[in-house]
Each structure stands twice: as structure tokens, then as C-alpha cells.
Design a protein around this nucleic acid. Structure first.
Lengths: 348, 348
DNA sequence: CGCTACCACTGACACGTGTAACGTCGCTCG
DNA sequence: CGAGCGACGTTACACGTGTCAGTGGTAGCG
């Protein structure tokens, strides 16, 4: 373990004891000063000396030691199985940035960890090792019961998971995917469409989203006795889209709600290439509605109609997390993560 | 701090001492067994008892205590200023997923942290608190000298930062953006184009990439005395693209290399809407080359030509990190993160 | 002058873990 | 029979931090 090659390979980070020695005070005094507990306990001069010493040595407190002592850590873990990370859309990444900033302001360290998806329990173990103050999932398969139990047992004060309903002990972050389908379906039905295809992505991580969206469309269609809803499988490749477009005449549909703007654009282009017309002006056209309202959806012609999630401001969620961490007895509840709205354009 | 509302709010996580009590052995024995150091020290029966007890209690080691004892932590920090996180493209997120999995296999915990961008030094402080085994940046403004010094002083064994050249003490991860420009420029020149516009994104975080790409195009043009290269500003909005398209005739260009497929598509659509033709078949057409080779680039017509980065497999980078962590004396060097290649399609 | 109150600090402990050093058996060999 | 020796465990310390309980010393007050 001792490496003769390294000259002074790891020059031992400065500790609070080093700061104390340099400032000529005790270690306790250093701690009080650097944590703002010095009022009425430590004189001005001593405080100044401590601060100067800390600055000169480049002292940075050791988070591990601190959270060991404090009993609870200060890190907030945004957990995501590794294979779902690539799926992160611009919406989520934008939220993520704001969230981490907000957490920082509250004294936490927000961190994103994509564990290997092999076993969800193994992932939870890896997360539990960090003894995070809170764990949230926004994406991918939600935490299951054993995972939540493990985390709770490891002292995690707040566990929040997305999905329709969280296992016992965990709070629910609700971005009701059903609502997305409901809005899209209602929009298409109001436009006179009755035979609606719903694109289900073939990518495995996304089924958890696609199912409730499909259910939402079905719920919207229930109000119209003559409406018909049919699921369609589509992978994110040109070949897959071409296959679906080739089969289109047999399907006898007049509208599609795609899982995503990307899927929508892919399919729309394939339909156009197969000779179909996209839009809602005449009954012969195919109406297409996507989701996420990507900028690129406006580049195709006609412009893509899209269901957009309006996410709760990240500061609000950060505040919620803080609250839950500080009063860990709070009974689990459901918290809205956002709502959906249709951005109507030309395609549907 | 004591919360009367919480019944048994935090049921104190099980420690190795609890496992030891339950198994009827000492704490040291537990440690040996659970870390695989039991060969020849602990009998089979005792090992079995320890493992069973750990399982029953749901014991998970406390990473903070462990890294406190070990001196160095096991977390590998992927650092990114918060405002650059939304810019993560599919390439990087895909890399990220594989990287975290590979790190996990090597015994590290890979974690992504977007610190508030306010002060780069403050961000480095936040990172240093975690005493990570390694810190890398792939994106955004690279680490500067004080940040690297702070991290090194905090005991971080390996600091790797992207960008043309790393500050002293840090390794360089090279994804040579100049090369992207070089390839795109060479491709356009080989296709007969001579007056090349280069799109510089108005978004602030991206200047660090855009500059060297521009330089690369200039370098490619240097071989042709009659070639001309002109920078163009463009924001990622339809209005900005329309403005640029309106000014197009005055610019007298016959090709564009855009920062990104997104920028490329945006501009391409705006040019088309302004009556220009995209392609390379006739001299009157405008050749467009993007970057990143997004699937969506193939949906527009003509299909978008693109410069694609071929990123080093994440396992390789993870192995490199492990190597550097284990022999911290290694003098800083430059490591290739990938190379660029042109995916030629119809637009340029 | 005695008592209290306050100030400016310090000593010491606990948090959970890994591991080097140190027993304690039971057995074998000289 | 004692010494030596594996096999099997344990005792004890260190890591860096936060904070409770003191501890002198000085000043205020009756």
C-alpha cells in the first residue's frame, strides 16, 4: 500500500487540528468559529486568527467525519438506474440543475447517481452506504418495497419516489403520466379524431411511463362511445418507423399520440415518406401529437403538436426535501411534481 | 433538534457492532468476514453466523466511517457546473451511464455533481468536502489552477479535467474540439466549398467548445488560399435563426459548420423557409454540417451531414481512473477521450 | 469581601469502521 | 513434559469532527 514511487503523493489534507495549532487555539474553538457558533463564545481576535489560518492552509472540512459525528449526512441523492440516464430529456436535466443549486443553498449536497441496474436491491445498497439525508427518484423504475425499507433502515430521513404509488415509508412524487395521455386524448377527440394510435416505445426503461399514458388516452376515449384506442410498438430507429408506416393503411387510424417528440417526429417523417399527409385540416390527414415540446418539433413541417410537462420549480421540491429531512416523522404523502398541458401546433 | 412528533423517526441504522452482538463474535471478526479478509482467520461456522446476522439486520456499511478510517474515499466525482448540466447531449449521458457502471465494478461510487456556478472555487470547495478519490470534468469550463490545487490539497488522488490543457497537478482528458472543426472543414473543402460560415452558439457555457472548433476550420482552410472562414452568432431560438437567414444573402457564404446538430437543424430550416436550397449538388446550394450525429438530423430533408465524436469506451476511462488513484505519484499526462469523424449525408 | 454572572476558551467523548498486535486454545514434536 | 505452532478470535487504536461540561479569570453587585 505504501508507494515508494510517489514522492509526497498524498500530502495529508489539513485538519481542523492543524488550523487550531496554527491559530494558537484549541480545536473546539476552530469548530465554533467555522460553524458560526462563535457568538459570545470566542473573541474577535481569536476568530480572525482562526479564519486566517483556515484560509492559509486551504482547510476544507471532511464531510465524512462531519456526517459521522452528526449522525446524518448532508447529501441528497438523486437516484437513477444507470440505463435510464441516457433517457433524461432536457426537461429533467434542466430541473436537475436548478434542484442542485437550490439544495446547495439549503446546505445539502445534491448528487446524481446511476447505479448498475443489475439488481435494484444492490443499487439501493450502494445508495444506503452513503447514508444520504434523502433519496429521490424521478425517472426509470421507481423504488420498490425492499429498497425503500433498506434505505429507511439505513437512516435515510426522506425517501421520495415517482410513480403512481410509492411503497410504504416513501413519499410519492407525482408527475401523473396518465394526465399526459388524458390531455392528449381529449385534445385529439375535441379535434374530431376517433381512431387513436398510442405509440409505446420498445425501449425497456420507458414502459413505466408509456402504460399510464395509454391508460390516460383510454380514459379520455371513454367519454366517446365511437372512439377507439390502439397501442402501437415503435423503437427509436428509422427501420422500425418505416415498418410501422408501411402497415399504416391496415391499421385504419386517424391520429397518433406518440410517447415523445422524438418518437413522434420519427413516425411523422416515416408516414410522410410513405405518402401520408399529416395534420387536422381534412379527414384524410393523420393527426400527430408528441410529448415534451422539444424545440426540434417545430422544425419539421407541419409543426408538431406536443404535450408539455410543467414541472414544479426545483426550489419548491428542494424546500420540501429539507422539510421532510428536518421532521422525519412526517407521514408519507403524495406531492405533485408537475402538470401537463397541450401545446397545440399544426400536426394535430 | 429532538423531535417529539417523530415516534421512532430514525431507528438508528444497524452498525457492525450490532451484527457482532447478534452473531456472538467481536466487531473485528465481522469486519474481516464482510471484507473478505477472513481466510485463515475466521472459521467457517463463525463466518456463516456473521453473514446471516448481517443479512437479517439489513446491515450496510457506513461509507463515511469507512472512508474516514481509510483516509481516502471511494467516490469518484463527475463535476459539472450546474448551468452546463442541461447541455449534456445524448453522447455524454450515454457515456456517463457506462462510466458509473464500470466504476461500480471497480469498487468506486461514481457520482455526478453540478455545483452552483457562482464561484468556481466555491464549487471546488463543495467537491473537496466529499474527499473524493478522483474528480473529473467532461464538460463546461474546465477546472482552473486554484481549484485543482484545493482538490489536490484535500487529498484527491486523481484530478482529470477536459480542455486543451490542464492546470499543474491535473491530468488532461482530451476530446480535441479543434479536430471536430478540422474534419468538418476538410470535408466541406473537399466538396468544393470555399466560403464557410461557422456557427458560434450564443449560449454562454459553450464558448469553450466553439472557439477551438472555429480554429480547426481555420486550420483546414489554411491549405486553400482562396478559402474564407467567417464566424456566425446564433442562439437556440427560432427568431435568432430567422434573423441569420434573413441576413444570409449579404454574407455570401456557400457552407456552414454548425456547433451542433440542433443548431444546424434550426438554421437549415430557417434557410429553407427563406427560400434557400440545402445541399452540395449545385453551386447555388448551401452545404450544412452539424455535429453529434443525432437521430433527428436524419428526419429533415435533406438528411444532415454531421461530425460525430467517437468516445473512448467508458470502461477504459474507469480503468484509467482506478490506476491513477492507486498510484497517486503518476505525473500528469494527456489522455484521449475520443476522436471525431464525419458522417456524410445529403446536406453537406 | 463574598457571591454570581459572564467571557473566552479547553478537555474529553462519541460517531462507525479497518487492521495491527496480541492472546488463547488444542495439538504435535523433541 | 515443555516448547512450538497453527487456527481462531479479540483488544485497542486511529481516522476528523461537533459539542457538552468544565475552568480559570474578570467584573458587577450587594
Amino acid at each position: 500500500m505504501t508507494d515508494p514511487a510517489g514522492p509526497r503523493a498524498t500530502p495529508t489534507p489539513p485538519t481542523s487540528a492543524a488550523v487550531a495549532r496554527r491559530a494558537g487555539v484549541s480545536r473546539a474553538t476552530v469548530s465554533y468559529v467555522l460553524n458560526g457558533q462563535a457568538a459570545g463564545r470566542v473573541g474577535e481576535r481569536a476568530q480572525a486568527r482562526v479564519r486566517a489560518a483556515a484560509e492559509e492552509l486551504g482547510y476544507v472540512p471532511h464531510a465524512a467525519a462531519r456526517s459521522l459525528r452528526a449522525g446524518r449526512g448532508s447529501i441528497v441523492l438523486l437516484a437513477a438506474p444507470a440505463d435510464t440516464v441516457p433517457v433524461f430529456g432536457p426537461l429533467l436535466t434542466r430541473f436537475l440543475a436548478g434542484f442542485q443549486t437550490a439544495l446547495h443553498a439549503l446546505g445539502y449536497t445534491g448528487v446524481l447517481h446511476g447505479a448498475p441496474a443489475a439488481s435494484p436491491l444492490a443499487a439501493a445498497r450502494a445508495w444506503a452506504e452513503l447514508r444520504p439525508a434523502a433519496v429521490l427518484t424521478l425517472h426509470g423504475p421507481p423504488l420498490d418495497e425492499p429498497a425503500v425499507a433498506l434505505l429507511r433502515r439505513a437512516g435515510t430521513a426522506a425517501v421520495l419516489t415517482h410513480g403512481p404509488v410509492a411503497p410504504p415509508g416513501a413519499h410519492t412524487l407525482l408527475l401523473d403520466q396518465r394526465e399526459a395521455g388524458l390531455r392528449a386524448g381529449a385534445h385529439l377527440l375535441a379535434g374530431g379524431r376517433r381512431r387513436i394510435g398510442v405509440v409505446l416505445p420498445a425501449e425497456p426503461g420507458l414502459a413505466a411511463y408509456a402504460e399510464p399514458r395509454l391508460a390516460g388516452v383510454r380514459a379520455a376515449a371513454a367519454a366517446h362511445p365511437d372512439a377507439e384506442v390502439r397501442p402501437l410498438d415503435l423503437a427509436l430507429t428509422e427501420e422500425s418507423a418505416a415498418r410501422l408506416a408501411a402497415a399504416w393503411p391496415r391499421l385504419n387510424l386517424d391520429a397518433v399520440f406518440a410517447y415523445n417528440d422524438e418518437y413522434a417526429m420519427l413516425l411523422m417523417r416515416a408516414l410522410q415518406d410513405a405518402g401520408h399527409t399529416i395534420g387536422v385540416r381534412s379527414p384524410g390527414e393523420v393527426a400527430v401529437v408528441g410529448a415534451d415540446d422539444l424545440l426540434l418539433g417545430r422544425l419539421l413541417r407541419p409543426r408538431l403538436t406536443s404535450v408539455r410537462a410543467e414541472i414544479t420549480p426545483p426550489e419548491r421540491i428542494a424546500g420540501l426535501v429539507d422539510e421532510l429531512v428536518r421532521s422525519p416523522g412526517t407521514p408519507p404523502a403524495t406531492h405533485r411534481l408537475g402538470t401537463f398541458r397541450v401545446a397545440a401546433r399544426d400536426s394535430g
